[in-house]
Design a protein around this nucleic acid. Structure first.
Ligand SMILES: [Mg+2]
Ligand SMILES: [Mg+2]
Length: 603
DNA sequence: ACTCATAGC
DNA sequence: GCTA
DNA sequence: GAGT
């Protein structure tokens, strides 16, 4: 549905609203939406000027538009003007523009911008000749590439991840319905829990034998909190600290610790000794000793030392900054940095902003300095909006917002952020689907960021993920909602995705900082991920985590001759296997479905 | 002795 | 090396 | 650091 705009305004306006010559700037309700106006029976000048005042992009041909504005009525006449586009664009009465314009004018000065009027209500009725598929409604999934081993699909999935219904449909997070205690998990064959693929993974009965708990997190339940949580927390700092070490050896030890922690998380009862814990795969002598020390003394000496050390605290603080990881944090410490101000100054010294080409046209005049700095400013804003900030700029911006970015995001607000994304996607391309993934989907009460996976509506443009996320990003920038773009990435794998052809100079991830409109809002980290429909289920699975769950999913796949990237790929044939829901992916892989709230394999 | 998830910037 |  |  979405068409990349033909023309781009020189939009260096740093924060939000579009400047306008007459009166105050309007809310850019049409930002990034290509609009075609049928030049008949309406006041072109007025309509076009209103569209432009609203930030709309004029499409020069109807097939490049998302909306067509017209005073004409009746299918035959419109088909004559619009050609085939009559079935692929939204054909709206001119009142739509007038109403949007009024709405934007009335809202000048308001803190919270209005939403674009629902365009469905302005559609020009167009009776179809044949009863065929509605172009903009996602009710009919296209024939998708089916699994090679279609025979493994025995019974239909109970509830697909997203029954298509609303225009923007959101896969609602499950309310953590974690059943505690004993439950008939798998009839009475706990030793082979994979036999019955039709039952979802649930918490283990308290009397499960530890050696029966399987090796990979994708085969077992990992609740948010487990009965041995305090033990895990006590051990945690030991491997966190090792991540800052230079020896690669220590880093692989970290993986080993993480696996131990992950499997301990699946244990449904209190562990009574290291020896008992050793029955678990991936818990060995070292971790067993740690557990014994904790159970005996109530703490672990080495861990306490680490937590108390100023080096560890500084390293944690440094690496909490985006773009600063373990290695850089350790290097900063070695360079003598002891607090974040040191870090800021360090990058100021070592990572100066790129110098612009010297513009020698204006030398000798008093304006030269002003013009140079203004140019600098614009270049900087361009970097900020396009994921091209220098490290110094990222660190500077992050430190300026750190107090806000460090604050946990409550579920309600995560939902609000999802709603804003949905609203703007709907303005750009009605019929998108989206899922809030990440920790939110796994049931966490608060999260450190928000991950939103979305896809274009089915149809002609369903693979144009780059154009869609690009438009979304620009629109949210125009509204002043996105404040910083930390990084843009192209689509999630270089593998075929055969049909659709050459249109893949595409961006499909945007890591941003945003702030919702209105008073009292905080800056938040948000990851926007756009996937083509054929990979949507895989993208949701990939972005739901947890980290250890994802790693184990990939190990399982590899063992069976598949690669799990942003989709399943059969190694032997290099063929992509696209499935329509998470459930189908689990089933295809011979796994019972693990509900998101039991994928919390990280400590 | 070898493996440990994977990909884009 | 950093991000997810 | 643990499993193969
Ligand atoms: Mg960091
Ligand atoms: Mg997240």
């Amino acid at each position: 549905m979405y068409r990349p705009p033909l023309t781009h305004h020189a939009t260096s306006s740093s924060s939000g609203r579009q400047p306008s010559f007459e009166g105050p700037p309007l809310v850019p309700l049409l930002a990034e939406i290509p609009v075609f106006v049928v030049p008949a029976k309406l006041d072109m000048i007025e309509v076009v000027s209103q569209i432009e005042a609203l930030g709309g992009v004029r499409a020069l041909r109807p097939e490049e538009a998302v909306m067509v504005i017209t005073a004409l009525r009746g299918r035959p006449r419109l088909a004559r003007v619009l050609g085939d586009a009559v079935d692929t664009v939204a054909v709206l009465r001119a009142e739509f523009v007038a109403d949007a314009y009024e709405l934007a004018k009335r809202a000048v000065g308001d803190e919270i911008p209005p939403s674009l009027p629902k365009w469905d209500e302005y559609r020009v009725p167009l009776r179809r000749r044949t009863a065929s598929v509605e172009p903009v409604t996602p009710t009919t999934p296209p024939a998708s590439i089916h699994p090679v081993h279609a025979g493994t699909k025995r019974s239909p999935p109970k509830s697909p991840d997203s029954p298509p219904s609303k225009r923007i449909k959101t896969v609602s997070p499950r309310t953590p319905r974690i059943s505690h205690g004993t439950e008939p998990a798998t009839d009475d064959a706990p030793a082979s829990p994979n036999l019955d693929l039709d039952t979802d993974v649930t918490l283990y009965p308290e009397d499960i034998r530890l050696r029966d708990i399987p090796r990979l997190a994708i085969e077992r339940p990992s609740p948010l909190k487990c009965p041995n949580q305090d033990i895990l927390e006590a051990i945690k700092s030991i491997y966190l600290e090792r991540e800052y070490g230079e020896l690669a050896q220590l880093n692989t030890n970290v993986l080993s610790y993480r696996r131990s922690m992950a499997i301990l998380k699946s244990v449904p009862r209190r562990i009574r000794s290291g020896e008992e814990a050793r029955k678990l795969v991936d818990v060995g002598a070292k971790v067993a000793n740690r557990i014994d020390e904790y159970l005996k003394t109530g703490q672990i000496a080495e861990a306490e030392e680490i937590k108390a050390s100023s080096r560890f605290q500084a390293l944690r603080l440094f690496s909490s900054v985006w773009s600063v990881g373990h290695s850089t944090a350790a290097a900063l410490w070695r360079e003598g940095c002891r607090d974040l101000e040191d870090v800021r100054l360090y990058f100021l010294r070592t990572d100066p902003a790129p110098q612009l080409e010297e513009d020698d046209s204006g030398w000798g005049h008093g304006y030269e300095w002003d013009r140079a700095t203004a140019r600098e400013e614009r270049a900087k804003n361009r970097r900020r909006e396009n994921g091209k900030m220098t490290r110094e700029e990222v660190v500077g911006a992050w430190l300026g917002l750190k107090d806000e970015l460090d604050r946990p995001i409550p579920r309600d607000e995560v939902q609000e952020i999802g709603d804003i994304v949905a609203e703007h996607l709907d303005a750009l391309a009605p019929g998108c689907s989206q899922t809030i993934t990440g920790g939110y989907r796994r049931g966490k009460e608060t999260t450190s960021d928000v991950d939103v996976v979305f896809r274009p509506p089915f149809g002609q443009h369903e693979n144009e993920t780059g154009a869609l996320i690009d438009a979304l990003r620009r629109r949210l920038l125009r509204f002043g909602i996105i404040t910083h773009v930390l990084q843009l990435s192209e689509r999630e794998t270089g593998t075929p995705l055969h049909h659709g052809g050459g249109n893949f100079d595409n961006l499909d991830k945007a890591f941003v900082i945003l702030r919702l409109p209105g008073k009292g809002r905080l800056h938040r980290r948000v990851d926007l991920i756009c996937s083509p429909p054929s990979r949507y289920a895989a993208a949701v699975l990939s972005w739901s985590g947890s980290m250890m769950f994802e790693r184990d999913l990939r190990r399982w796949c590899e063992d069976r001759g598949y690669k799990f990237r942003a989709g399943l790929v059969e190694i032997a044939t290099n063929r992509e296997i696209n499935l329509d829901s998470e459930r189908e992916i689990f089933r295809f892989l011979g796994l019972r479905y693990v509900p998101p709230e039991l994928r919390n394999a990280d400590v």
